[in-house]
Design a protein around this nucleic acid. Structure first.
Lengths: 167, 167
DNA sequence: GGAAATCTACTCGGATACCGCGTGTCCGAGTTATGGTGG
DNA sequence: CCACCATAACTCGGACACGCGGTATCCGAGTAGATTTCC
């Protein structure tokens, strides 16, 4: 299975649509975002509460409310989104096998318990590299890249869809 | 959940015990390795068939048989073990959400399908960073680090346990 | 016409159902050394 | 003494049971703007 949940994917793509062609924030409701991308609404709603708790988006309640980026899109990294949605999870779950060696039966010595397990240290550092890489890409980067790839008509079509929706 | 399976952990720790204090390969049976580390035997057996298929260990069948590193421990990286056991799996499962935008209904245009999804590209490159990091650590490194941390008596105790076991 | 009640469209949070996959176990088959047995 | 056979200790491979967590759905509660109703 994949490490990052599908929620992460939904989250990132959603945030990408919450910034317009000029890079400014755009106010949208969860239902709009879900319908726009043909994504399950209830599920996406849960994801946005997490994004909100993490401070990546701001919510306004009541009718006409919705979500909005809490800070500029160039200050929201992919790592931020990942952490917000999936939480701090580890690529590797160390089971302290080093302590289970049959030689020290029932009572592993201190040297086998203190510090980080060597295997785990390697894994942790690898994960850190990955996260550093994720931290180098922002939502704005992704949005720009998407709009650059699409024909110019796409930007306005999205905007029109949203406007028609509000009415 | 963790990305790398517990099998990976078992595998790496097992390989570490298959090289002696001088760094030379040591012949061991799965049962020995499992008992030494108090790890489920049947499960570990499956892991070793994978290591074997990947060419990391060599097997000798029949009584007195067992496994042995197929190449020097300094030429087996953590990434090798991970790939052998968990196979080539991806941190991120792209669901092509970009194609699901409601604007192009039922028939996403070509530009939305060709090339890599932007989000996926970011994830893939991040994973690559992680794997590069894993490829920089070898089994020999890990073994050395373990023996360096343990008191000198530990090395001989392990050897004695193995020898007593053979008799 | 203004205040109050109703309606509608949101954000929240909990409970739950489904199901795939990791983890672990069991069993049978094939292989090779070892030890015992009979001629 | 030697050929033969049973046994034990391995590696393989498939099948399966169990449980957890990701995915998704449903529902109720709270909030706030828009609309209607009623005096």
């Amino acid at each position: 299975m994949a490490f990052y949940s599908s929620g992460v994917e939904y989250g990132i793509h959603s945030l990408m649509y919450m910034v317009d062609s000029k890079g400014d924030a755009r106010d949208m409701s969860v239902r709009e975002i879900a319908d726009l991308q043909s994504v399950p609404y209830d599920y996406l709603a849960k994801i946005f509460t997490r994004l909100s708790k993490a401070g990546l988006v701001r919510s306004t309640e009541g009718k006409g409310g919705g979500y909005q980026l809490a800070r500029p899109a160039e200050q929201i990294t992919v790592l931020d989104v990942v952490n917000a949605i999936d939480g701090a999870k580890s690529v590797f779950a160390c089971r302290e096998i080093r302590q289970r060696v049959v030689i020290f039966d029932e009572q592993p010595p201190k040297w086998a318990c203190e510090g980080l397990c060597g295997v785990r240290a390697v894994m942790d550092s690898a994960q850190q590299r990955m996260e550093e890489s994720l931290a180098q890409h922002t939502i704005l980067d992704l949005t720009r890249k998407m709009y650059r790839k699409a024909p110019p008509t796409f930007v306005v079509e999205v905007q029109e869809w949203i406007d028609a929706r509000k009415a």
